[in-house]
Simulated assay, not measured.
Amino acid sequence: MRAVVVSATGGPEVLEYTERPDPAPGSGEVLVEVAAAGVNFIDTYHREGRYPLPLPFVIGLEGAGRVIEVGDGVTGLSVGDVVAWTDGLGSYAERVVLPAGRVVPVPQGVTAEQAAAAALQGMTAHYLIHDVHPVRPGDTVLVHAAAGGMGLLLTQMAKLRGARVIGTVSTDEKEEIARRAGADEVVRYDGFAEKVRELTDGVGVDVVYDGVGKATFEGSLDSLRRRGMMALYGGASGPVPPLDPMTLNAKGSLFLTRPKLNDYIVEREELLRRASDVFGWIASGDLKINISHRYPLGDARQAHEDLQARRTTGKLLLIP
C-alpha cells in the first residue's frame, strides 16, 4: 500500500509518499480501507517533532473508511461497516489498522468525507463547548481563526447553545465565511482585544477558544471578563511562553486550561456520545461541514504547506 512516512522530523519536505507493507489486524483490531484522512495542526506538530514520536512513522490521526477485515475478539463491527476515528496514528495511508474500541460508526446521512472532516475537530469542538466551558444562552464567546475548520465548528456549536459569537479572521473573504457560519461579530487580529471590549461594553467575553497560541494569547486574556475562561486548545502560531499565575489574578481571577481531546474521550461511552451528537447534527443539517480542499494522498506536503501558511479555510482532506 501507499502511505505518507516521516523518517526525520522537520518541515513539510520530510513527508515521503512511499510504499509500505500491507497491514493486518491483530486481536481486538480492524483493518480499514481509508476513504479520507483529515489534515490537522497536530499532524504538523508530529512532523516537526514538537510532539515526539518514534521514527519512522506513518503520519495522520483522523479519518474515515470501510472495514475490510476484522481481527479476533472484535464484536459489534463487521466487514463493510463505515467507521471514523480521531486517534489512529498512520491515517495518511491507503489502509490502517485500528483498535476496534476507538472507531465509531458513521450513520446513514453522513458521508465518509464528512465523517473524516468532523471526527477529530468535531469532537474537540464538542468538549470545548459542552465541558471545558459549558456554553449557556446569553454567553458571549470569542473564537479565534473563525473561518478555519475548528473555528467554523466552534461557532456553529456555540450558536446551537444560544451564545453570541465574536470571531477573529485575517481577510474579508474569511470574514464572510465566518458570518455565514453564524458569527455575530467578526474582527481582525490587529487590536482585537480592544475591539472585543468595545463590543461587550467593556465587560469582556465569558470564554475564549484559542487554537492560535503565541500570537493571540495575551490579547485573549485581555478579552476576558472577570472570572472568564481561557481555553487554549492549540498553538498554530507557536507555543505560548511560560506564564506567571499572578497574571491571571491581576486580570480578574481568570481561569486557564490547556486541554486535549483524548482526556475527554477516555471511556468508549463518552467517545460514542460525542460522535453521536456531532454526526447527528451533520445528518440533520444543524452542523455544516466546510471541506475546502481535497488533496491526493501523495500531495500531503502541499496540504501541510497550505495549512501552516493559513492559505485555506474550512477542513483539508487527503484522498487515497
Rank of each mutant, 00 (worst) to 15 (best):
A163R: 14
M157D: 11
V205G: 08
D172I: 11
T86W: 13
Y209A: 01
L199K: 05
G149A: 03
G122M: 10
A146N: 08
S91P: 13
M123L: 15
Y92P: 14
L154A: 06
R180D: 10
D210R: 06
R164Q: 11
G191Y: 08
G211I: 08
V110W: 07
G182N: 07
A145P: 07
A146I: 10
A193M: 09
A112V: 03
G191V: 00
F192A: 00
I166L: 09
G151F: 09
G213I: 00
G122V: 12
L152A: 02
Y127L: 02
A193V: 00
V96E: 02
T171Y: 11
A158L: 08
L153F: 15
T168L: 05
H133Q: 09
Y189V: 06
A146D: 13
L152I: 04
A119W: 10
R179T: 05
A163V: 02
M123H: 11
G101L: 08
A125Y: 08
G149N: 12
Y127E: 03
V106H: 07
G202R: 00
E173M: 02
G138L: 06
L199Y: 02
T155K: 03
V207W: 01
D210V: 03
G167Q: 05
G213S: 00
V103T: 14
E175S: 13
G90L: 10
G138K: 13
V97L: 06
R95W: 11
E175K: 06
A147E: 13
P137D: 01
A116R: 08
L160Q: 15
V165D: 12
L120Y: 14
A181Q: 11
P107C: 05
A100K: 13
V205N: 04
F192W: 05
I177A: 00
L199M: 06
I166K: 07
D201A: 14
G122P: 14
L160N: 09
H130D: 08
P107T: 04
V212K: 13
R164D: 07
Q121T: 14
T200G: 01
I177Q: 07
T124N: 11
F192D: 01
A147Y: 10
V103W: 00
T124Y: 12
G88A: 06
L152D: 04
L98H: 10
D139I: 01
V212S: 08
R136K: 15
A147W: 10
G88R: 01
